[in-house]
Amino acid sequence: MNISNNLFSLENKNILITGSAGLLGKMHAEAIMAFGGNVILTDIDIEKVKNLSHDLNQKYVNQSIYYQMDITSEQSVLNVFNELKEKGIFVDTLINNAACNPAVGAVGMKANNRLENLDFDLWSKDLDVSLKGSVICSKIFGTEMSKRNFGNIINISSDLGIIAPDQRLYYKEGLPDDQQDVKPVSYSITKHGIIGLTKYLATYWADKGVRSNSISPGGVFNNQNTLFLSNVAKKIPLGRMANANEYQGAIIFLCSDASSYMNGANLVIDGGRSIW
């Protein structure tokens, strides 16, 4: 059996990342460029994505390009698609990375997300960004992939796409129950839905050479308060949250030919949390 040393090479592959100016989006882009891929950075925040592109282009020989793109707007996504097509650039891999994430910070959650107080404006925003946006991008770029009989869609879910959030992690002493922060219901629904979208796409265009997989990452160190870090570490067999760069190997694997027979799978990388 001959195994090419270029099995994980991303040379000549055009890879588009949504939400690329976010914490993990930056890590995805860095890894892809390090392995020779051409990165198309997209984000609703044009300044952040512009600065990211500049920094990456200073570091790597292969160049990134960037676009402002609102994934909740079909017209905005079409505009980027058409601009790329005019330049003769076709997306080989789409990474649906953009999402709303009410993360824990130094002082806990940023807002009261309890189901009893559910704000349906925030609910709609969460579903629009995480689900509608992923469907729009998959529709537009995936359709073109199916016409070319080649393509790859990677969806970013979460460990909370396969398990329920343990709301005890966010508990604060001295607050009554109805004021305790929680992970919102929209987060669970969207992250479970992303895995469902992955399975749907994996069968929908399989005969057109388009495959689809997802990643369910665990939480990442990002200035969380010490109490939360201590509590969540007890729920993870490896005893800690992830460093931001620890999902890069999975991204390279799924973008490369090394995963050419992987389709419809959800790659769980959570330090073992979901097995306890």
Rank of each mutant, 00 (worst) to 15 (best):
P165A: 06
T203S: 09
Y171K: 11
I163G: 05
D177V: 14
A164G: 06
D181R: 04
T198C: 05
I194P: 00
Q167T: 08
Y200H: 15
R168M: 15
Y187P: 00
P165L: 04
S186Y: 09
K183M: 10
A206E: 04
W205R: 00
Y200V: 08
A202D: 01
P184R: 04
G209S: 14
K199T: 08
P184F: 06
T198M: 02
K191Y: 10
I195R: 00
L160H: 04
P165M: 04
L175I: 03
T198Q: 01
I194L: 01
Y187Q: 00
D159R: 09
S186G: 08
W205I: 00
S188C: 06
A202I: 01
I189E: 12
D166A: 10
P184Q: 07
D177K: 14
Y170Q: 02
P184S: 08
K208I: 04
L160P: 00
D166K: 10
Y171A: 12
G174Y: 11
D178K: 12
G196E: 07
L169Q: 08
K199P: 06
A206V: 13
L169G: 09
Y171W: 09
A206D: 01
P165F: 05
I162R: 02
Q179T: 06
G196M: 06
L160M: 04
Q180F: 09
A202P: 01
G174S: 14
L169D: 09
A164P: 02
G193Q: 03
I163Y: 07
K172C: 10
S188F: 07
A206I: 11
Y204A: 06
L197R: 00
K172A: 13
D178E: 15
G161D: 02
K183R: 08
G174T: 13
Y204F: 11
V182H: 03
D159T: 03
D207R: 08
K208T: 05
D177A: 14
T203A: 09
Y171H: 10
Y170K: 02
R168A: 15
A206Y: 02
Q180M: 11
A202T: 04
Y187D: 01
I163K: 05
K172S: 09
I163R: 03
Q180W: 07
D177L: 14
T203D: 08
H192E: 13
K208A: 14
W205N: 02
A206Q: 02
G196D: 05
G161M: 05
V185P: 11
D177R: 14
Q180Y: 07
